[in-house]
């Protein structure tokens, strides 16, 4: 409802860029309708294929640039999983690599002007966070059975405090997917919305240079955020996985 200042000429539509539209025609959006989100997810798949499959097809001992990037991403996530989740966590490495590659590519693709950032939608991030949450909880119960509940029973605390801490731990456990998803979507959305607001100020000639500087600065910030949020999402997944594999405090 920011479209009220129509008489003043300055119209803020910072959220308009996140609107889903059908790619073909102008009908309603059914669950199967190809939309701009579908398009940019497809482009993300394409980029990942280019980077990790086409880029490494020569299997060079001395890698070229593309293969280097692919190997760098592989090593980055592999060491992260190994360091944080431990040796047993390596089994789930492809799963975590999938999440990381999708988020980081989608974030960077979203920074292209006029593109659509799929990771700014809570629907997308909530699904990913819930996938992680459900998987990790199932892994915990399959590995340790009822012993997984030791995660909530802080054995290092005084006995009287333990029930209180258990309640707090339980709540924080169930808040995990919420913060996990909203952090990613919120960061991406905030960056894009702020850029949009700065861009709207560019309509006023007097402060247009200032708004341009603001856009450039925010864009630089967003490039950083795009990577850091993907990193954070992935490393939190690893941390949750570690909790499931070694629940005892």
């Amino acid at each position: 409802m920011a479209a009220e200042e129509q008489s003043e000429g300055l119209q803020f539509h910072p959220m308009e860029q996140f609107t889903l539209e059908p790619l073909f025609g102008d009908g309603p959006i059914h669950w199967y309708t190809p939309t701009n989100a579908t398009l940019w997810m497809g482009i993300a798949i394409l980029v990942i294929v280019l980077l990790l499959v086409i880029g490494t097809r020569r299997r060079a001992i001395v890698p070229n640039r593309t293969q280097s990037i692919g190997e760098l991403a592989y090593g980055f996530i592999y060491t992260m999983v190994e360091d944080v989740a431990g040796k047993e966590g390596v089994k789930y490495f492809p799963y975590i690599m999938t999440l990381f590659m999708f988020i980081v590519t989608a974030n960077f693709l979203g920074l292209i002007p006029l593109s659509f950032s799929t990771t700014s939608h809570i629907a997308v991030t909530v699904v990913m966070a819930l996938l992680v949450f459900v998987t990790v909880t199932l892994i915990g119960f399959f590995k340790h059975g009822i012993g997984f509940l030791k995660l909530f029973w802080v054995s290092s605390a005084p006995l009287a405090l333990r029930p209180v801490l258990a309640v707090i731990e339980l709540i924080s456990y169930f808040v995990r997917p919420v913060s996990h998803s909203i952090r990613l979507a919120g960061n991406v959305m905030a960056g894009h919305a702020v850029i949009e607001v700065f861009a709207t100020f560019g309509a006023i000639l007097a402060i247009a240079p200032l708004s341009l500087i603001g856009i450039v600065a925010m864009f630089g910030m967003d490039v950083l955020v795009a990577f850091v949020q993907a990193y954070v999402f992935t490393i939190l997944t690893c941390v949750y996985l570690k909790d499931a594999l070694h629940p005892a405090h």
Partner: peptide, 27 residues
């Protein structure tokens, strides 16, 4: 550094939450 980023992420999340509340109120 991993702990640093986790800490930053947790701390920053609350700023994002407040931003989200502002957006919800606005739009």
């Amino acid at each position: 550094t991993a702990m640093l980023f986790i800490g930053i992420a947790f701390s920053e999340a609350f700023g994002i939450f407040s931003f989200l509340v502002a957006l919800l109120l606005m739009f």
